[in-house]
């Protein structure tokens, strides 16, 4: 039963991940007084890209072609480890969240290698920025997960999330809200949203993530887009499981609740993007260090208490 439930969650995630992008964009459009693109625009884009042919630069090698494929595969495996819904993840074992974080790291490493493989100055710049910032974001994410593991006394992601209940919030609201804030920052940074990156900009010189994938085209660009939405779903999972501890016990109802919470999260991202400007690139590491400092503070608080 748990296996089947895990699979259902996984399929749900695979289908719904691009929808979050549509929701965030719609929220931004409403704030700006525009109608905005259709909610399913990300699906249309991915569909369109998968029907296109690919253009390869003559300066690139196999690394460039391997990049999107390995990246998507690694993200997919990471998704299998994430408890996105009420039930256990498809794979669950002690320390699985560490594997998950480094699978996401592997995924990023291949995008970066593919970017460097093109030899373009833009992509080199993007790769350098991505590595610098993700190095800091990774610290924040890992510390958050360690803190959660320590608080709940569990070692696998599914059980950790299972322990995040209303009762836990009643006892440890301070610590948990610090962790939630840190997770939100990591989520925004990793999914290249404002205030870290601007997903809408056309200005190559200011981009972080987008500039690394300028040379990709067709299905491979589709894979990157889809992989990015899966990554957002994975990171969103932990935040949502932490912030919305309500559960009914019924698998279908829990999954629906979870899906609804994810949509609310996307709306929240849209609101954040609509109400603040992007940070100067110089200040991005400072905010990310802040994101890493929050779980440290959580450790101290709970050690002291």
């Amino acid at each position: 039963m748990t296996g089947a439930a895990g699979m259902t969650q996984l399929v749900f995630a695979l289908f719904c991940a691009p929808f979050l992008l549509g929701v965030a964009n719609r929220a931004k459009a409403l704030f700006a007084g525009r109608a905005g693109p259709p909610l399913c625009q990300a699906y249309f884009d991915i569909w369109r890209l998968f029907h296109k042919s690919v253009v390869y630069s003559t300066t690139t090698t196999w690394l460039f072609r391997a990049g999107p494929v390995v990246s998507l595969a690694a993200t997919f495996v990471a998704l299998c480890l994430a408890p996105c819904g009420g039930a256990k993840a498809v794979f669950s074992f002690d320390g699985d969240f560490i594997v998950m974080v480094y699978l996401l790291g592997l995924s990023r490493a291949f995008i970066v290698l593919a970017a460097l493989d093109t030899g373009s100055s833009f992509e080199g710049m993007g790769a350098s920025r991505e590595l610098q910032f993700s190095l800091l974001a990774e610290v924040g994410l890992l510390l958050c997960l360690f803190a959660l593991a320590w608080k709940t006394g569990m070692l696998d992601a599914s059980s950790i999330c299972g322990q995040l209940t209303v009762e836990a919030w009643r006892q440890e609201a301070g610590v948990l809200s610090l962790l939630a804030a840190a997770l939100l920052l990591v989520l925004l940074a990793e999914s290249s949203r404002i205030p870290f990156d601007d997903p809408n900009t056309h200005l190559e010189l200011t981009m972080i993530h987008e500039v690394m994938v300028l040379d990709h085209s067709g299905p491979e660009l589709g894979m990157i887009l889809y992989g990015a939405s899966l990554k957002m779903w994975i990171l969103g999972t932990f935040l949502v499981r932490l912030v919305f501890p309500l559960r009914t016990g019924n698998f279908a109802a829990d999954l629906a609740l979870f899906g609804g919470a994810m949509v609310l999260l996307a709306v929240g991202i849209g609101i954040i993007e609509s109400t603040m400007a992007r940070l100067r690139l110089l200040n991005v590491p400072k905010l990310l260090l802040g994101a890493a400092a929050l779980p440290c503070l959580a450790f101290l608080l709970s050690a002291g208490g």
């Binding site: 007084g33 900009t201 200005l203």
Partner: peptide, 12 residues
């Protein structure tokens, strides 16, 4: 405003 990603002023 659009260049710093601040949408309200940009669209108005």
């Amino acid at each position: 405003a659009a260049d710093v990603g601040y949408l309200p002023t940009a669209s108005f």
